Deep mutational scan, measured.
Amino acid sequence: SHFELRVGTITLHFDNISEELAEELEKLAKNGVHADEIRRWWEEWLK
């Protein structure tokens, strides 16, 4: 499923992401983690 995450002024787009993972990314964003860090985390997870 597709997921969009708003982090400050940036909107990150994720394809084929589980609800659980989407929730984890939302938690990171709410805790003030920068969009670049979240994207890096996601790319690492995909490997």
Rank of each mutant, 00 (worst) to 15 (best):
S1H: 15
S1Q: 13
S1R: 12
H2P: 04
H2S: 09
F3Y: 06
F3N: 00
F3Q: 00
F3G: 01
E4C: 05
E4Q: 05
E4M: 03
E4R: 03
E4F: 08
L5K: 01
L5A: 01
R6Y: 03
R6E: 07
R6F: 04
R6W: 05
R6Q: 15
V7Q: 02
V7W: 05
G8E: 03
G8M: 03
G8V: 03
G8D: 06
T9C: 13
T9G: 14
T9R: 05
I10D: 07
I10A: 05
I10Y: 03
T11N: 03
T11L: 07
L12S: 00
L12C: 01
L12Y: 07
H13N: 05
H13L: 09
F14R: 01
F14P: 00
F14L: 03
F14G: 01
F14I: 04
D15T: 11
D15L: 11
D15N: 11
N16H: 06
N16A: 04
N16E: 04
N16V: 04
N16Y: 08
I17F: 02
I17T: 02
I17L: 04
I17R: 00
I17E: 01
S18T: 13
S18K: 03
S18N: 08
S18W: 03
S18F: 03
E19K: 14
E19S: 12
E20L: 06
E20V: 08
E20P: 07
E20K: 11
E20D: 10
L21D: 06
L21F: 06
L21Y: 03
A22L: 07
A22H: 04
E23R: 15
E23K: 14
E23P: 02
E23W: 14
E24R: 13
E24S: 10
E24Q: 13
L25C: 02
E26W: 14
E26P: 01
E26H: 15
E26Y: 14
E26T: 15
E26L: 15
K27C: 10
K27L: 11
L28V: 03
L28G: 02
L28M: 15
L28W: 13
L28S: 02
A29P: 02
A29Y: 04
A29T: 05
A29I: 04
K30F: 12
K30P: 02
K30E: 10
N31I: 10
N31L: 13
N31H: 14
N31R: 15
N31P: 06
G32A: 08
G32Y: 06
G32R: 04
G32K: 04
V33Y: 15
V33K: 12
V33F: 13
V33L: 15
H34T: 15
H34G: 15
H34I: 10
H34E: 14
A35D: 03
A35Y: 07
A35R: 02
D36G: 08
D36M: 10
D36K: 06
D36P: 07
E37A: 10
E37C: 07
E37R: 07
I38K: 01
I38C: 02
R39K: 10
R39E: 07
R39P: 01
R39Y: 13
R39Q: 11
R39W: 15
R39T: 10
R40T: 09
R40F: 07
R40L: 11
W41F: 13
W41P: 00
W41E: 04
W41R: 13
W42G: 04
W42C: 07
W42S: 06
W42A: 14
W42V: 09
E43P: 01
E43G: 09
E43K: 15
E43A: 15
E43M: 15
E44A: 15
E44L: 15
E44Q: 14
W45F: 08
W45D: 02
W45R: 11
W45P: 00
W45E: 04
W45S: 06
W45H: 08
L46V: 12
L46A: 09
L46N: 11
L46M: 13
L46E: 07
L46G: 10
K47Y: 12
K47I: 11
K47P: 04
K47T: 09
